[in-house]
Design a binder for these strands. Structure first.
Lengths: 152, 152
DNA sequence: GTTTCATGTAACTTCTTATGTTACATGATG
DNA sequence: CATCATGTAACATAAGAAGTTACATGAAAC
């Protein structure tokens, strides 16, 4: 597997859901994402546990948004996924006896920790509502582009 | 595989080499690192190509440091490894047609790029010589600890 | 010059983890 | 009760790092 794309995927789902009233079945969402319904259920499970979304069985069932989009940040969504590791690199050994390794770990950890902290901080600054606003802007400008193309 | 530990590993090797004159065989280094000689050769290949180290065959051969340790940063070493990906997460799709995905990617890329830039910057601030100095401090304080334990 | 030693590299195995898929149980709706 | 949808286990697939084996290349020692 190249890189973990669950955060990217689940945000895609949430943003799609924010564009129109639900509920949405896993199958519908899976088709929009070109993947499998089980994958959808899997990445949504954590968000359901935190009550960011709700799921209903049976006819008319599916997934529904259940949170204030202006209150939930990308960092919250990341946490709902179980906080998978952010960095692709790490130390060979944690808590090594070898002093050489300790010196290496100390230097790397400082850099790694800083980068992780910044990434989490950045994710914490962006709410789902802000993502939705950005999307609406993109939809608007596409519409304008279409009109100007029509006029040209 | 959990996480890429090549940077950690190769730094460990370099720091070991900086502690005493060489040359060191891959087998010696592998034993110190509790790994396989081929792994050593593999992670050292890029550094040899950049002339950070030299390797000699035959009797008395092995690896030798061939650079000014105060001029080479951890970032240089990282680059010598082929600049493997730093982040464990990424976008589901690059250059997507879907506007939703574009909005998600834009938000995530901003956070990801910032974190990567910070990490590279931090790695660029630390030279191998600084790592060596830190190691010597650790060796010194261990000696002191041993002495005070002896006095106690 | 032949033996020994060491690197260089290809090929294969093993391990881990995200992702894709199948199968089936659970529960809600008509 | 039949249908629909989620919940989840189990298994398959894929990618990459790390470990291992095998052998070629070349240098030094004898």
């Amino acid at each position: 597997m190249k890189r973990d794309s669950r955060l990217s995927g689940v945000l895609h789902v949430l943003l799609h859901m924010a564009q129109q009233p639900g509920p949405f079945t896993s199958e519908t969402l899976a088709k929009a994402m070109d993947t499998n319904p089980v994958v959808i259920r899997r990445i949504m499970a954590g968000l359901r546990d935190l009550n960011y979304v709700r799921s209903e069985k049976g006819h008319g069932g599916g997934w529904t948004l259940a949170c204030d989009l202006s209150k939930v940040t990308l960092r919250d969504v990341y946490a709902a996924l179980g906080s998978p590791s952010l960095l692709a690199m790490g130390n060979r050994t944690e808590a090594p006896g070898c002093l050489v390794e300790q010196a290496v770990n100390a230097a790397l950890d400082q850099a790694f920790d800083d980068a992780e902290a910044l990434l989490l901080s950045r994710l914490g600054e962006v709410t789902l509502a802000m993502l939705g606003d950005d999307l609406r802007k993109r939809l608007g400008s596409r519409k304008l582009q279409g009109m100007s193309a029509h006029h040209a």
